[in-house]
Computed example of a mutant assay.
Amino acid sequence: MEIYQHFRKEEQPFIDQVINWKEEVERMYKRKLSDFLDPRERFIFQSIIGNDEELSWETFGGYEGAERQRIVLAPFYETIEQDEFNVTLLEATYPSKFVTLEHRDVLGAFMSLGVRREKVGDLIVTDNQIQILVATEIASYVMMNLTGIKKAGVEFKEKDFSNLLPNNEEWVEQSGTVSSLRLDAILKEIYNVSRQKAALHIQKGHVKVNFRTVEDPSFILESTDMISLRGKGRSQLVNVDGRTKKDKWRITTAVLK
C-alpha cells in the first residue's frame, strides 16, 4: 500500500488499524472510539484521515493540550460530545511528608496492575496529590486495586473535570541544525552529550522513542517523535524544518523542564 512508504515499518499495524476504523465507520455509519493515543499516533491518524469530507473526528484527553488523547471518529453529519470519549479523572492524596512520588512511580504502580498503557492518559503528580486520566471502562478496577504506590497508601476517587489540577509542565523550544536525523545525532543536539555517549545510552536501552525502547543509534526520527533519556528527562522533535545550504537538517526541538 502506497501510504506505508510515508511511515516506519513498525507503524504499519497501527496504520492498518486506522484504515480499518475508517472503513468501519464508512460502511456501518457507526462511530469509533480509540484508546489513548500519543502525539505520533495522532499524527499518523490525521495523515490517513486527512480532510475526508465523509468523516468527522475530535480528540480529548481531559484538558486542552493533553499529551495522550482519545479520538472519536464518526460520520460527517454527527456531533461529537465530550462525554462520548469515556475519559474519567481519578484523584488521590498521599503524605508527602513521608514519601516523595514522581510521575514514573505512579505510572509504574499503575502498569503493575496489568492494565494496557493505551488505557491510561496523562498523569499529574504534585507535592501531595495524584490525578490520573483513564479510560472509563477501567476506572472501577483501578479504584479497587491501586491502593499503594511505593510506601504510600492511596485511595483513588472519581472527580469531575472541574477539579483538574493545572499541568505545570514547561516545555522549552529551541532551534538547531544536525547532520542527520539519526537518534544519536538528535540526542547529541538536545541533551548536549557527545554522539559517542549518546550511542552508548541507546545501546544500553536507556532511550525511548514514543514510549518504546530503541537500541539502534541509526534509528531515524521524524516530526512529533517523543524522546526520553534515562536520568536526563523527556524531549520532543517538534518539527523537521528542512535543509540548510550546507545540507544539514534544521530542526525544532522541545525539552521538558
Rank of each mutant, 00 (worst) to 15 (best):
H6E: 02
N20M: 11
K22D: 06
E23K: 13
V25S: 03
R31I: 08
R31P: 12
R40K: 03
F43K: 08
F45V: 03
I48R: 12
I48Y: 01
I49H: 03
I49K: 15
G50H: 11
N51A: 08
D52G: 15
E53Q: 14
E53K: 15
L55T: 11
E67C: 06
R70N: 13
L73Q: 14
P75R: 14
P75I: 12
F76S: 13
T79N: 07
I80T: 14
I80G: 04
F85N: 04
T88L: 07
K97Y: 06
F110M: 15
R116W: 04
D122F: 07
L123P: 09
N128S: 15
N128R: 11
I138N: 05
A139F: 02
Y141N: 08
V142A: 06
M144L: 13
M144V: 07
K159N: 14
P166G: 08
P166A: 08
P166T: 04
S175E: 15
G176D: 14
T177N: 05
T177A: 06
T177R: 03
V178M: 03
S180R: 10
L181P: 00
R182E: 07
D184K: 07
E189V: 10
Q196K: 00
K197L: 11
I202N: 07
V207N: 00
V209W: 07
F211A: 07
F211P: 04
R212L: 06
T213Q: 02
T213W: 00
V214Y: 13
V214C: 04
P217Y: 00
S218P: 04
I220D: 01
K232N: 02
D241P: 11
G242F: 00
W249R: 07
T252E: 10
V255S: 02
